Structure formats: structure tokens, C-alpha cells
Simulated scan of single mutants.
Amino acid sequence: MHLMQYEITLPADYDMAVIHRRVATRGSATDDFPGLGFKAYCARERGVDGSPVNQYAPFYAWRAVEGMNAFLWGPYFRGLSNDFGRPVVRHWVGAGFERGPAGTATAATRRVERVPADADAGEVVERALAELRDHARDPGVHATALAVDPSRWELVRFTLWRDETPDEEVRYRVLHLSRPEADDLSPGRHW
């Protein structure tokens, strides 16, 4: 599993209805994308849920690197780059994925945590995986994933929520959720 996200920060006075329309008319295009576990079409709106910015920030869980490559080098990402400029794409190595009890997802959070330089990275990841399993039991969680950026020694936890999200994390609204191969991101399966 590979996790990926790019953030397109838009002007403070940007009409976010443009992003909502874009997702409403184009979001289903990834509903059957090969190699894609899920894509959460995430957005932040200035002044909503404490967001200081307008931002379009899709988050992906790729089951296979071939699918991620096909997306990045193909017409979907090319179209986005033509419309907004080519964004920086963050990429993390997947460590774990858990399903939660909530049936739908309308919100998401991303939490980033540094791995201390003096800590055993393996032990930190194992603890984070145990926390991920506990986190997935929250009744509001639809699904949650953990990944590692070994170039920066950071853990990222991305969680899809039924509705309300914790205040302390980066919060998004999920405008559409594509899940073509989410069943292949087996609960408890760790990479």
C-alpha cells in the first residue's frame, strides 16, 4: 500500500463551488481506477471547521504502485496540472489500514507525527499500528491508514469519518469517495 496526497491552496476569495462542481462532474472517473484502494476528494474551506485556507487536497491509498504511476503519468493528473499547475505530491510507504464501524465518510483528518531521532523506528511504528487498531474502533471512523515517510521520519495517519472530526487535526470535507479496490486493503493487513 502507498499513500499519496497533494494540496492545492487557492486564493482566500476563491469560489469553492468551482471545486465542488469539478468533483461532482469528474469524481466518478476514479470509481474503477485499477490499483486504487480509495481516493478521498478532500477540500478545506477558509473559515469552515477552523480552516485558515481554501484548499483542494485529495488523498489516495494505492493498493499497487502501478496504479499510482498510471495516475501520475496519465491523463487524470495531466488534466489537474493543466488546470491548477503541477502540485507537489507527498508519498508515504503504507504501514497499516483498518476499517471502522461507520458506513459512510463525509469528513477526514490527517495527523503527522515525527519519529524522534533517538527512538527505535520499528518500535514507534509498532506502537502506532496498535493505536491505529484502537482508533479504528471509534464509532465515527469509516477507515484509517498509517504510513511512514522515511525521508523525513514522519508518521502520517489519515482517517475517514462519518461526520464530525477531532478539533486537533487537519480537517477536510470529503466531497466524493472512490473505493474501487478498497476491499483489497484488508483490515489488519500490514505492509
Rank of each mutant, 00 (worst) to 15 (best):
Y76G: 03
H135S: 08
A102L: 04
R21I: 00
G96I: 02
G103V: 05
V115E: 01
L36P: 08
P187M: 12
E169I: 00
E66Q: 13
E98Y: 00
Y60V: 05
R171T: 01
G140L: 11
T144L: 02
G37R: 08
P87K: 09
L129A: 02
A182C: 03
P180Q: 12
G27L: 05
D167Y: 10
R171K: 03
V18F: 13
D49N: 12
T144K: 01
R86H: 09
V48E: 13
A70V: 00
S51N: 11
R137H: 13
E168V: 04
Q55C: 15
G140P: 06
R133K: 14
P34K: 09
V65K: 05
A29D: 12
R26Q: 13
G94E: 02
H91F: 02
E98K: 00
L177H: 05
R99M: 08
N69W: 11
A121M: 08
D83W: 06
M1R: 02
I19T: 09
D163L: 10
G94H: 03
G103H: 08
S51T: 03
L72T: 10
G140Y: 05
L129N: 01
L160V: 00
A12S: 14
P139T: 04
A43T: 10
G96D: 06
A119N: 07
G35W: 09
A24N: 07
H20K: 13
R21T: 12
R162E: 15
V89I: 15
D167C: 03
M1D: 01
W153G: 00
E181A: 15
P139C: 04
T165N: 03
H2Q: 14
S186W: 15
M4P: 02
P58G: 11
D183S: 14
Y76R: 07
E123V: 12
G74A: 10
I8H: 06
G188A: 05
S28Q: 11
L155D: 06
M1E: 01
V170D: 14
F97V: 10
N54F: 07
W62H: 04
Y6L: 00
A145H: 04
A128Q: 07
L155H: 08
D134N: 10
P75L: 09
